[in-house]
Write a protein that binds this DNA or RNA. Sequence first.
RNA 1: GGUCAGGUGGCCGAGCGGUUAGGCACAGGUCUGCAAAACCUGGGACAGCGGUUCAAAUCCGCUUCUGACCUCCA
Length: 486
Amino acid sequence: MKQNLFVYNTLTRKKEEFKPLNPPHVGMYVCGPTVYSDAHMGNSRTYISFDLIFRYLTHLGYKVRYVRNITDAGHLEGDADEGEDKISKKAKLAQLEPMEIVQKYTVGFHEVMELLNILPPSIEPTATGHVIEQIELVKEILKSGYAYEVDGSVYFDVEKYSSSHDYGILNGRNLEDLLNNTRNLGGQQDKKGKLDFALWIKAKSEHLMKWPSPWSVGFPGWHLECSAMSNKYLGGQFDIHGGGLDLVPTHHTNEIAQNMASCGKIPANYWLHTNMLTVNGQKMSKSLGNSFLPHELFSGNNSILNKAYSPMTVRFFMLQAHYRSTLDFGNEAMEASEKGFKRLMNAFDLIDDLKASSSTDVEIKPLLNRCYEAMNDDFNSPVLIAELFEASRIINSVYDGKLKIDEDNLQLLKQLMKSFVLDVLGLKDEQAAGDDLPQLLNFIVNLRNEAKSNQDYATSDKIRDGLQKIGFQLKDTKEGTNWTKI
RNA sequence: GGUCAGGUGGCCGAGCGGUUAGGCACAGGUCUGCAAAACCUGGGACAGCGGUUCAAAUCCGCUUCUGACCUCCA
C-alpha cells in the first residue's frame, strides 16, 4: 500500500490523493441497476469500471467493503407524482408479481456480471429489504425541517435546503439556473417547489408494491434507498461513492441533500463517475433504440454487429479506454480489441515456458513502476495496457531467443503479468484446453512432422490447415513445432 | 434556450507546455519448404483562425462541429 493513488473527484473537479478515512479499510458505494429489464452494454461498462477500481484497491492491500445496490422498488417512470414505479408497471404488463420481475432480471444481471468476470460486491442490498431504514430516514429529514408532507406523500424542500446549503455542490450549478431551466411537468401540484423531490409516495389503490408508513400506505422515493443503505452498511461518512455520469445532476445531488439534511454530512469524500458508452457518437440508451444487450454481443445476434465477440474481448475493449472518457462502440474497434486481446493472452500463456539466462538484456523494474504509475493516475487502464504490450514484446522475444533475461527479472516479469492481467484488469483466458487435448495434439503434430521429414508437404499442410480451421495454430521453430488455441 | 464536456493519423484510444503512448489496419524486412505467429523498420494526427511563449496537440481568445445534462437513464 505504498502507492500514491490519485483519483478524480467530481465534488472538487480535480484529481486528489486518495486517503481513506480508516486505512486499511475502504468503504465504497456504487449505484446498481434497477431490475425492471435487462441491463444493456452501456450499463455494463459502469460495472466493469468500478470492478477495475475495486480490484486495484484490493491489489494495493486495502480491505474494501464494496456495496452495490439492487433497485427493486421506488424508481419512477418520470418524476411526476403519478409516475408509476418501473417494476410495478412491468409486472402489470407481464401479469406477474413484481417480485417475479425483480427475480428474473436480478438473476440475468448476475449472469452477465459473471460472464464479464466482474467480482460480486461485498454487500448487494435491495431497496425492498430496507423499507424500514428508509422510513426512519424520512422521519429524520422531516425532523430537521427539510421535508414536508402533503396528503400522505413526503417531499424534500429544495429551496429551503438551499437557503443554508449548497444544493448544486456536485454539479456546480446554482439554484437560480436550476429553477429557470426546469420544465413544468404535469401532476406536481402537491410540490411546493418545482425542484422538490419525493421521499415517500402515497400509493394509489391499484399500485402493487406498497408498505405502511406513518404518512400513508406507499413506497419510498428512488434517491432515498442509496442514502439509507450506504448509511447502514458504510456509516454516515465513507470513502468512495460512484455511479454513471448521468446520475450526477439528479440522483447523487439529491442523495447528498438527503444525507446533509439527516446527518449533516456529505456521505462520501470521493465521488467517482464513469462516462457513457456511445454508438456513432451518441449515448447508448434504450429510448434512442441504439442499445444492445451483452448476450446479443456475445452471440452476434443484433443487426448492428458484424459478428459475435467474447465476454473477455468486450471487457478488454472497455478497459482500453479511460473510465472518464466516452467510448465509441464500433465493429472495427471491437475486432481490433479482439486481436489485441489474443496477442496479450498468447504472450501471457508463454511466461511459464520462459527460461532464465545468466545475464539479462531487459530490466523489468522500470516497467513495473510504469504499470503502477498508470493505475495510480486515476486508474488509467489504457496506459497500463500499453505497458503490458511492452511486456508481451519482451516475453515473445525471450521465447524466440532474441533477448536474454535473468532469473530475478524473469520472476518480476511473471509477477507483473499475473498481477496486472489477472488480478487488476480481471482478464482471463477463454480458450483453456482440456486435459487430454495436449496429448492428442502432440500426436497429430508428430504425425505431421513425419510427413514433413518425408517431404510430403501435401499431407503436412493438410494437417496444419485442418487444425487451423478448427482453432489450433501450429508454429514451426528450430526446437520443434508448437501449437496454440486461437 | 441555459449549463458542462469534447473534436488526436484509415479505425479505437492515451497524452494535456519541450522528448510526438498503445492496439488494429497498411508497407518493407528477418525467420520458414511455403505459411502463420513472432520480431525489426516505416509512413502518416493533433477541427479552423488568431494570440501568449525560446518552445503549444497541450495555455488564452474567437469561429465551427459533436455530445451530455436540464425529463427516467449507468
